[in-house]
Design a binder for these strands. Structure first.
Lengths: 198, 198
DNA sequence: CGTTGGAGTAACTAATTAGTTACTTTGTCC
DNA sequence: GGACAAAGTAACTAATTAGTTACTCCAACG
């Protein structure tokens, strides 16, 4: 197989994304990244420098996406835990995306799909917070209800709830989506219109 | 100084809370916990078992509180990253607290302080999500605006925004709290009524 | 061609770290 | 008062792991 430094670098980066998303900085292993990339460990130092540099490269590569996927949210969490809000990697690019999202909120407000008397920047952040929460804190979802955060039941119920909240004027029938059982524990009701398989 | 196993155990646990909140599981060091506790490392194994057991003891001890503090949120993040939503420690106690919070949401709905046509369980979770977000993802707050998540400016603006959103009927004047500067980057305006020191 | 420098490999090192061993001290109960 | 178990200490071990050394290989360029 022919040499191809760019491909090697890319394979290492991809392996590092997986490793760091799964294990965080301290929990990640250079050897494991090398193994998964099918590359020699020495190549990581050759192409990136050191562990810290690989981590930063991962952040720079993957920290900006339209929709919040599980891997991305985990990287955000690791970023926050390791680095706080100082020295944000790829800030300019990320701001550009944020501004675009604020813009789309503004449009939605114009169309009556979102409350138009709230600040669009904060509203965009709030939407992000509510989207990210179940991915970031699945155990808290389980504390408030029985359905796992990744289950279809929960996802649909949560999306429905958010839509009702976002569009306060048009609250149609919107009756409780959860009911409490005898122990006072929340349980998702099947969504209306959702076929239940027998 | 007299022997006091309970006190030793408590000191170790307190040191472990700090260590794990700061560094997560993989990043935490048994030696550091021992040093901070002023105890011998061996005592950690004596009183708890192993590193994993100390971690679980920390989770059980600190995972339930009324208000979300920074340490608690960091522990929640580490818990989610390390353990996902399986095998939740102290589930019963945490559910009890969640139910109480849902109850207080229900009361607030009755008083008109919260929209009364939304499911109280989901509304309680949403409030938690919005409270926790700035503590969990300070870097994203910085992407959407200039004020740090811990600054008074941000905290007050965020609280104000949430109150306006929670009480949709009584939206008073509520004009944008953020304005975009020439780069399209959000900036918090000083809150009305907030004295600005010269 | 041949030489030069980046790409790649294998084996090593130095440090760190969870967990243990083998021991001493202390309080308590008879 | 002495026996016994729990509380505590210091030094050790075995494994892991980031980073290095000292090489070989290959391709392009003159």
């Amino acid at each position: 197989m022919p040499r191809d430094p760019d491909r090697t670098r890319a394979k290492i980066l991809a392996a590092a994304v997986t490793e760091f998303a799964a294990n965080g900085y301290a929990g990640s292993r250079i050897d494991r990244i090398a193994a998964r990339a099918g590359a020699n460990k020495r190549m990581i130092y050759h192409h990136f420098g050191g562990k810290q540099d690989v981590f930063e490269a991962v952040l720079a590569d993957r920290l900006t996406t339209e929709s919040a996927t599980e891997d991305l949210v985990r990287l955000w969490m690791h970023e926050a835990l390791e680095r706080g809000d100082g020295d944000i990697v790829g800030l300019a690019e990320r701001r550009r995306l944020a501004v675009a999202q604020v813009e789309s909120v503004r449009t939605a407000q114009g169309e009556g799909a979102l409350p138009n008397d709230l600040d669009p920047s904060f509203l965009a952040m709030a939407r992000l917070a509510l989207d990210v929460f179940p991915l970031a804190f699945p155990q808290l979802v389980r504390v408030y209800g029985d359905n796992g955060a990744t289950s279809n039941e929960f996802r649909e119920a949560w999306t429905g709830f958010l839509q009702d909240w976002y569009k306060p004027r048009e609250r149609s029938r919107a009756k409780p989506r959860l009911k409490l059982d005898r122990d006072g524990v929340a349980r998702a009701a099947t969504r209306p219109g959702q076929p239940r398989r027998p």
